[in-house]
Amino acid sequence: MPSIKITYLNTQLKKLRDFVEGTLVPLRVDPVHINLVVVAVEEICCNAIEHSDHQQDHSKDFIHVTIRPHLEGSTARVDIEIKDSNKNHFNLANYDMPDISTIVQHRCNGGIGLILFKKIAENINFKREAEQNICNFSTRVPIEGVRGCESTSLPHS
């Protein structure tokens, strides 16, 4: 199954985006929805990079991303797993989500990525196993040229 590992550097994000896009383009997923999947994956990885221990040597650590697409007629379900080795465990369920007008008013930009992620992703699960943080989620995306693809549920509110 398609997977990639990146180091804890924001300069790796382009490589990550190219990987997600390169995995979904051959399946003829609608480009707007490919972009949303890219955004969701990048937001979680960006969060892992931002909250990594910057005093710690990460030269031998990686963020692992695995994508499992499942074609289901006019749509595909894309299951995604992201693993990082940060000591701090992040769980979206514990995060108090501000609304966008509050973010604009108070300049608390930190919440934007998580709002985006929550709007795009479904079946979100965060857990810690074997000293790793594991984020699983899925999205349902339309396949181009297949009737009924406009019925996709992504993104949701």
């Binding site: 972009n35 890219v38 990048e42 960006c46 604009v104 300049r107 930009n109 990525g113 985006l116």
Partner: peptide, 16 residues
């Protein structure tokens, strides 16, 4: 070509 939350954050913070 692409925008993610740090880029969007520039728009939202500079709007004020």
């Amino acid at each position: 070509n692409y925008i993610s939350s740090p880029g969007i954050g520039v728009f939202t913070s500079r709007l004020e």
